[in-house]
Design a protein around this nucleic acid. Structure first.
Lengths: 219, 219
DNA sequence: GTCTATATTTGGATAGAC
DNA sequence: GTCTATCCAAATATAGAC
């Protein structure tokens, strides 16, 4: 899966990079060394390091080990890459809302499930989610992504409101504020989580416990 | 205070902007229409809207209602503005750590105090703190700011570790993880908080309660 | 598919008149 | 203090050879 290449360990390879020219299947099918997906992984890693706006096509092509012109042979420009990356990330997040445990049960239990899954998706799709969370809204693509994000957050907020109405969430904090703090906590993980660290498997549950029960020791 | 001008309501005024040519004090002192502080407020608002890298000097001068050349008469370039903004933000945050209630008492109580104050500083210095939290590390100035931020976060993490050692913070979550979630929650507020909203005064305590006791209703 | 060369635009920054 | 004019570098993107 290309998520691997999009991580910190992007294949930074010089111009003389060795490679198998092509891979032939049983039917003689040819697979190009670079498809859009693999260039996307390289590009997203660069975007996350420098920021989307500060990353030039020159930076991207250098990171891929080819010239700018060659890079343009594969993609129409920066924005196509951005759109593909944001789409992947948003699709992953929205899919959670359709899962079984997200659609039935007590509001607070559905909320707990969604938070756990959101952390899992964030871990699995880290570079793509990271990029999504840094979008500012300068282009049409970015505004489209912001709109979908708002819609996702609104679904969470509605669930918090329901849970509060059912007395399952504390009543002394505005549910809208609680929802924003909850989403903010989960999203902030992209700023420090790196895959392969010890404790990565425990993170989703750690986050659920911390968010729902707080950091204080029980007395 | 210029924090006001740096908010969403920046003085977007056209070329024919009316203004008093100068203000004379009792001693006949002259005050320029634009000093560095007021241009900084305008610039930071632009940086936060479009992102620092996506904001050109042309954008900044247009927002200030003067030409690029005139803008350069006041400041040496984008980076000077960035540095001044980040400095202001970092100074505000670090000052918290020297306050009385941050230096004495039980670790958990110091922590609670710092979180509350951090939210208050974030509210008071919103545009500046927002900019700080979005810095990527492309220039020397940005790396300097990231370094100071890391140092601030490390102070919080150490306090969480102490509180955990004293049994005041839950033991089933790694204190380092808890500290990152705590900082992430507070920092995420810049993404949605806007001054002058109802409930702004209650926010610091709402955040403290939510972070320390969780979102669940007490049974 | 990849390259070199180049067209075109934008951005940072300065010179010098008023 | 502000302006117009301009320089230079960098960025997006394309043309066309191999």
């Amino acid at each position: 899966m290309s998520a691997d290449a999009a991580s910190g360990t992007a294949p930074r390879i010089g111009p003389a990079r060795p490679r198998s020219r092509r891979a032939r299947g049983a039917a003689g099918a040819r697979r190009p060394v670079y498809d859009v997906a693999s260039l996307l992984a390289v590009a997203v890693a660069e975007f996350n390091t420098r920021g989307y706006d500060a990353t030039s096509m020159e930076d991207l092509s250098r990171a891929a080990g080819i010239t700018k012109s060659s890079f343009y042979h594969h993609v129409s420009g920066k924005e196509e890459l951005l759109r593909a990356a944001l789409e992947r990330s948003l699709d992953g997040l929205f899919a959670i809302l359709d899962e079984r445990h997200a659609t039935s049960g007590r509001p607070v239990d559905r909320l707990r499930y969604i938070v756990r899954r959101q952390v899992e998706v964030l871990q699995a799709e880290l570079p793509y989610v990271t990029l999504l969370l840094r979008v500012r809204g300068n282009t049409e693509t970015e505004r489209w992504a912001l709109e979908r994000r708002r819609s996702f957050d609104a679904a969470i907020a509605e669930l918090v409101r329901e849970a509060a109405g059912a007395g399952q969430v504390r009543a002394d904090v505005d549910p809208a504020v609680a929802a924003k703090l909850l989403s903010g906590t989960v999203n902030s993980i992209v700023e420090w989580y790196r895959p392969g660290r010890p404790g990565a498997d425990a993170l989703p549950e750690d986050v659920v416990r911390t968010v729902f029960e707080g950091v204080l020791a029980r007395d």
